[in-house]
Design a protein around this nucleic acid. Structure first.
Lengths: 190, 190
DNA sequence: TGTACCATGTAATTGGTTACATGATTAC
DNA sequence: GTAATCATGTAACCAATTACATGGTACA
């Protein structure tokens, strides 16, 4: 059976501990370091598929006042599958970024309006960056200052976070540069 | 009629000059600044759809020895549609990057093998970066050294290229850092 | 009274990839 | 010969988004 990238993401999260589809949804709702978003309408069918393939199993946990939970865990063959995938060949995924596309086509819009579009994007990515930096400060405080002493899972999480920080820093600075440049031009035309 | 992002990308490219589906395919095959990839199997139906909506038109240009070309141009309403879209509201697109996901799950694979995965990615993105830098040197040489004097379309292309350079620089450096860190650990365990 | 959270799912649709299909020309 | 380029398209499939669907609890 062929497993999709989403399937491996789910297996990888379950390898770190048992959780329900709802828990998975919460962890994959925002890209805080995971860089793989998914909604519940994708996760529930994926779990059913993985269970059919013997990669995960579940147990129904009744709750009082709240709906029952289906708590999923990973099987031995599931663990083997992620372990092989994670070191396997990795192709460059197709590049699609609407913000950069808009920059490329920015000559089709007014300078002042375009500057506003990029100002908004700059703000959004600065906010994400600030969030990631807060997380990093928290991690550094809880490991004695040197993240390189972290082992396995902790280092893996930190590495993904570093990527988030680098990505959002570069992206927000670029958006600001585009906005400032277009804004200055609009101003100079008055 | 609702136009997809691919549709706007096609309209935007046609706004810069008439071209065939094949030409569009060539320009969207690699992300050199455009940051929106597409294959011919997506482009041809999209052109037909846009033509049905009156956004583009075509003319058959016969050739000797080669198949006939269908050369597409943008209509007034097509130009109006892209112009409105490019300054319109822009939502943050979902984040999905398999390389970062692999870093997050790297504790599931052997350190030496994981270091190899990131070494490969580092090389790939360094090569793309080098290609973009060559393009930038060529542009700077052809505009007298100051890219900020560029107007409209030229500046738009340069802005997208700057994004490509920033993205690949950050990405390749991060991949190298992950690879080096994991490699040093694998070495230290001997 | 309304909104958000918990918790599960399905259905319809759009977007994108891979494979199928044709046929002449040019370069190695 | 055989691969690549030119030039067009369609069909089957997979991945992802949006909308539909249910129902109790907590909080303002």
């Amino acid at each position: 059976m062929k497993i999709s990238t989403l399937g491996y993401a789910v297996l990888g999260l379950l390898a770190g501990g048992e959780m329900s589809g709802y828990d998975l949804k919460l962890r994959m709702a925002e890209p805080v370091g995971y860089f793989w978003e998914a909604s519940h309408s994708q996760i529930y069918p994926e779990l059913a598929k993985l269970e059919g393939a013997g990669m995960v199993f579940h147990e129904v946990v009744p709750q009082s006042g709240k709906p029952d939970r289906k708590v999923y865990g990973i099987t031995a063959s599931g663990l083997e599958a992620v372990g092989e995938w994670v070191t396997g060949p990795l192709r460059a995924s197709p590049t699609r970024d609407e913000t950069t596309l808009r920059a490329y086509l920015s000559w089709l819009g007014g300078e002042r309006e375009m500057a506003g579009v990029f100002e908004g994007q700059a703000r959004l990515h600065r906010e994400r960056l600030a969030g990631y930096r807060r997380t990093e400060r928290w991690i550094l405080a809880n490991c004695g200052g040197d993240p390189l002493t972290m082992e396995g899972r902790d280092f893996a999480g930190y590495a993904a976070l570093r990527r988030g920080i680098g990505f959002e820093r570069e992206f927000s600075e670029w958006c600001q540069w585009v906005s400032d440049t277009l804004g200055a031009r609009a101003g100079a035309r008055e």
